[in-house]
Design a protein around this nucleic acid. Sequence first.
DNA 1: GACCAGGAGAGAG
DNA 2: CTCTCTCATGGT
Length: 282
Amino acid sequence: MPTLTLDNDNSFNLDATLSCGQVFRWDRRPDGWWYGVVKDRVMKIRQDVNTLTYSGATAPFVRHYFSLDLDLDAILASIDRDTAVHAAIRKNRGLRLIRQPAWECTVSYICSTNSNIPTIRRRIASIAEKFGEPVEFENTVYYTFPHPEAISGSGENGLTECRLGYREPYVFGTSCSVTDPECWERRIRTLPYEEARRELMKLNGIGPKAADCILLFAFQKYEAFPVDVWIRRIMQECYLPGLATDSPLSNREYDSIRTFAREHFGEYCGWAQEYLYAGREG
DNA sequence: GACCAGGAGAGAG
DNA sequence: CTCTCTCATGGT
């Protein structure tokens, strides 16, 4: 089986990367192998110190998908500006932002609102099983994530058994809007962060938080700083004690948090967000 | 049952 | 533009 040797001066932590909640389609087996469906392929991968062993993908794909081409230590040095993020970095050093397929990532974060991670994972798996293409790998059948037309083509009630709750019309509506996902992805990718954000928020079911997650995880807009209930809590405790605690997060408050983060952590504030999120207690 | 989870949209002011 | 209220699901 092919292997890939990691450079000692460019750290990587596969477990932290796949279990931090940025991606929903990977499973870790007790023997240490991770299995995942990425685009039209099924792959597995494991890490033993500085060796990655994998199958189902090429070395360039693995390198690109896990962002192994980036100088992580330089990124972490740039965001390491206070004791809170310093502790988060120490705890999860080697965590990398993945380059996720854009369309799947978009639907995933539409499905994520007001939900916990196990529930989101079940929804994505359910959509793939119902509308995706079967792919066999090691005598097991997996399902690719479906093209938007496969979802929209089944009508507005086609998603009912996926149990998305009130998000069902959002996924259907966005599947109707994004008829050509490759072209759509290229167009978003050319836009600067704020402009791309406004574009994404025109789609059904995508507000500020989902847009920031999609831009960070699928479009490598590292100045995005998604604010969910956990990040809000951390920001209140460690950075912005003046913020209200009880009321639901307003749009103004969201903007004040992400603006502060952009100025405090710099152009890689999205990485700071993911380290803080991974280090959360709860 | 109450409460929470990687929130967003419709409607009112 | 800004605040408020409602929304469906599953786990604890």
